[in-house]
Design a binder for these strands. Structure first.
Lengths: 263, 263
DNA sequence: CCTTGTGAATCTATTCACAGCG
DNA sequence: CGCTGTGAATAGATTCACAAGG
């Protein structure tokens, strides 16, 4: 049973907290931009849509750096959250699939501002190879195996002696997703974020997470239907959920077998 | 305290279950395509990365339509999940922002195949107005107020007497997000899905959900750092989380005040 | 014999409430 | 005083384990 807290205090950080940290971070940055030097748990809670006690509990897991009677120093808080999340450094990211979604991600402020540096973008379509997209140029998928030799990779302060980007992002059509995943694993990528609507199989040492952009919409659909069933006007008000998922992650065991296999 | 179950049985469906339903749905559809007529909770659980008992509990909330000794009829299961989610009909959706993300969503199979029909796509950039994107053409943002008069809207079997799309999706730069939200609310849109990295304020009767594509990556960063801290090789294996969030939803109260306001 | 459906047990997350510190 | 940090209390979600059905 591994799993220990993140930074100074040896506390274990629960998954639920990990998922709220980016939310707090974003709010703190907005508040900083608005000129505030300190934030109270009350403020953060209001903006994040959660209970103030939860904010305090979450933040206390990163260490005790609030000031009683005042709140948290916004700038310091932001840096501590980043440290806990491990985004106080640059993570090189390779994106496969230069369609609209891939391009959107490569260009997204969220990626670049949070320490995710896209070092390569691949596509199989000769028509887009060579296109400049944000900081990179679309490479032919066949070059994927050269991921380790990337120039750009050297620019990053050699992150942690990584020979290849730690993170691969798949934004291909679902038909190509498994092959791409296999090849990413083959070159040594340690974690994969899959946007293709397809269940993938990877070795157990590879961290695999899924994002399905339509799940949020489906959850919305549920609550809209709900509201209708209770008659117009009875919109579910603040009975509504606050944090929500968009993904699924299968365990390693026999996933492919089940999809493809006879008994 | 409203909130009742979704379909036949009067049971209340917990948020956690609602978020897993789209996951099951997707898997069932994949299995159907692979030619399977029935699914067991065990199979479903393996592919979704959750416990089989949880699958059964989740599905039992939609009614008891499994067959003991056999499993669930895949096609029927899919239809029941859709009904529970309220996607057994078409939801008209308006997307604002025809950048890469907006285009990706409009074209996404996930949207169209799950009953979300994009009836309008708006942008402010004259350079892209008129571009065909999937089933629609980019309209000038100034036409947003005409949302109610849309031809396409009439095509849909008048969903539920809705005068305007029930769902608005914001994929603009964050600087424009609040104004767009205000205008969507102004024309009567009842729920908004915001991809812009900005906290928004809407009246309490409007359902607002957020998606931040970088949150998943940040959660990954956390677990990668974790793994490193425990030394290479000690990758956190199946201690890893399975379902995860990408959003935040603030409560209505004084959100704007807090961001902008003096005490 | 296999798999569902579900009460009871467990585990996890959230909220309360207050002592303690700046 | 006001606000953090946190034990204790509560609520909620997950897993166990098994009775019952096809």
């Amino acid at each position: 049973m591994p799993q220990v807290g993140s930074g100074s205090p040896g506390r274990r950080i629960p998954e639920a907290t990990v998922e709220r940290l980016p939310v707090y971070q974003r709010i703190v940055v907005e508040l900083l931009r608005a000129g505030m030097a300190t934030v109270s748990s009350e403020q953060l809670a209001g903006l994040a849509g959660v209970n103030a006690a939860m904010v305090r509990k979450d933040l206390s897991l990163l260490g005790s750096f609030g000031t009683r009677g005042t709140g948290y120093d916004a700038a310091y808080l932001a840096s501590q959250i980043d440290r806990a999340l491990g985004v106080d450094r640059e993570w090189p990211v390779a994106v496969v699939g230069a369609g609209n979604l891939g391009r959107a991600l490569v260009n997204s402020e969220g990626f670049s501002s949070r320490g995710f540096r896209v070092v390569a973008l691949y596509d199989i379509d000769p028509g887009v190879i060579g296109d400049p997209v944000g900081p990179v140029v679309v490479r032919p998928l066949d070059d994927l195996e050269d991921l380790a030799d990337l120039d750009d990779l050297a620019d990053i302060g050699d992150v942690s002696g990584e020979p290849v980007p730690a993170i691969g992002v798949i934004t291909t059509p679902s038909s190509a997703a498994q092959e791409v995943a296999d090849r990413l694993v083959g070159v040594g990528v340690r974690s994969i974020l899959n946007f293709a609507p397809r269940v993938l199989v990877v070795p157990p040492h590879v961290l695999l997470r899924y994002v399905d952009l339509s799940i949020e919409l489906q959850v919305m659909s549920f609550y809209l239907s709900q509201a209708e069933r209770h008659g117009p006007g009875s919109i579910v008000e603040r009975e509504l959920p606050v944090l929500h998922s968009v993904g699924l992650t299968p365990t390693a065991e026999g996933v492919g077998d089940q999809v493809l296999g006879a008994p």
